[in-house]
Write a protein that binds this DNA or RNA. Sequence first.
DNA 1: AAGGTGACAGTTT
DNA 2: TAAACTGCCACCT
Length: 115
Amino acid sequence: MDAKRNTGEFFDLVYAVVREIPEGRVTSYGAIARYLGAARSSRMVGFAMNASFGVTPAVPAHRVVNRNGLLSGKMHFEYPDAMQELLEAEGVVVKNDQVQDFESRFWDPNTELAL
DNA sequence: AAGGTGACAGTTT
DNA sequence: TAAACTGCCACCT
């Protein structure tokens, strides 16, 4: 539906992909951005997450981490440890703000969804 | 209307 | 080898 370019079109797209992330899995901003066709807008993906708070349905922003598997945006949550707690609650092992076995937990929309 | 910012990523020194 | 800088696109003031 592209009848009109609603402001935040990118946001909504990002939310849709993040909502498709299975529990216990994580993805990177670049992967999402690339899936949207805006691989260079990886920063924007994180920005969208910033607004994801209060968005319905809830967006599992805690499943989105940076390329390093580091919880770069945990500080933006309700409280810094919220992101880690949420990930651990889903079975994701987080150590030192870092997702353990990140590559195994990595969920690539381009690969998993594979269009 | 224009400029600055940003939860990153890739490249270079 | 590791560390630092630039580039990027869209949102926000």
